[in-house]
């Protein structure tokens, strides 16, 4: 336990829950990954909601007149600017770290989920041996292994790709046409676009970072899916769709962001100081 706290507290329980679901639903690993992702998303729903709420409040603050005024007024006095910012936080009951803390808590969960999917797929003798040691005794590992890694047209243990017509090959796409990488990139882009509020403040650095993130993240995740087991892609797609769903449930999805000229600022919800 103490020699491997990560394995004991995160990786092993995650892997076993994933395998338990796999066993319960009749040995369909793709479906197990989807259900496991839903389960994790449900458990972390309050954290996500808190993070989304905190991010929204901070974003709204960027569009607030008083906030913009102090940025201009104390542009050359960083110390005073910081004092004024703290005053506004205090006056309006805003915790500037409210969106960071849930993200930090979720980070090991996301990594754990990612690792548990790859561990369960055990594609080489060494990883299968690691899996054997991960499975709890009551799970009857001998009956579970080998996992059925086929799901739809995919082998979840390998990067996904559809064969090019006529046996055509490309050396930089050794697995064929990367359908799932495109779907992952697209859903990641959609999620970021739909959930990031636009800003009217041209100096809003958060909005600038968000805008860059909406480009980098889809590319990054698409690249991951190109190179890693497609089981991870199932997780990414499910997670992205659930993220959009959660935002929609909270009434925060901004569909107008999908239109080329339709970006509109979300209505400000920041309390005014009295």
């Amino acid at each position: 336990m103490f020699s491997d706290p990560w394995g004991f507290f995160i990786l092993n329980p995650f892997t076993n829950v994933l395998l338990l679901i796999y066993n319960l639903i009749g040995h369909n690993f793709g479906l197990a990954v989807i259900l496991f992702t839903i389960l994790i998303r449900a458990i972390t729903w309050p954290l996500n909601a808190q993070q989304l709420k905190g991010a929204r409040v901070m974003q709204d603050l960027q569009n607030d007149k008083e906030w913009q005024d102090i940025q201009k007024k104390y542009a050359k006095d960083r110390e005073k600017l910081a004092q004024e910012q703290m005053r506004i936080y205090k006056d309006r009951g805003i915790n500037p770290f409210a969106s960071c803390l849930p993200t930090l808590i979720q980070f090991p969960i996301i990594i754990g989920l990612y690792q548990s999917v790859t561990r369960a797929l055990a594609a080489t003798p060494l990883t299968l041996l690691q899996l054997a040691r991960t499975i709890y005794p009551f799970m009857n590992a001998a009956a579970i292994i080998p996992l059925n890694s086929r799901f739809l047209w995919m082998d979840l243990g390998r990067p996904e790709g559809l064969p090019f017509p006529g046996g055509f090959t490309l050396s930089f796409l050794p697995y064929g046409f990367p359908t799932l990488a495109i779907v992952v990139a697209l859903t990641t882009y959609l999620q970021t676009k739909l959930t990031l509020p636009p800003s009217t403040n041209p100096n809003d650095q958060t909005a600038a970072m968000n805008s860059m993130m909406s480009i980098y993240m889809p590319l990054f995740l698409g690249w991951l899916v190109l190179n890693y087991a497609s089981g991870l892609a199932i997780y990414f797609v499910t997670s992205n769709l659930l993220g959009i769903f959660q935002y929609a449930m909270m009434g925060r999805v901004n569909w107008r962001n999908l239109l080329p000229t339709g970006s509109q600022p979300a209505p400000s919800k920041v309390k005014k100081s009295k």
């Binding site: 990594i111 990612y114 690792q115 055990a122 080489t124 003798p125 990067p159």
Partner: peptide, 20 residues
């Protein structure tokens, strides 16, 4: 983003890359 990429790459098991 690069740090995230490195972390995710480093923590990925041998599922697709293949080590044994």
């Amino acid at each position: 983003v690069l740090l995230g990429a490195t972390l995710l790459s480093a923590c990925s098991s041998a599922a697709s890359r293949g080590t044994s």
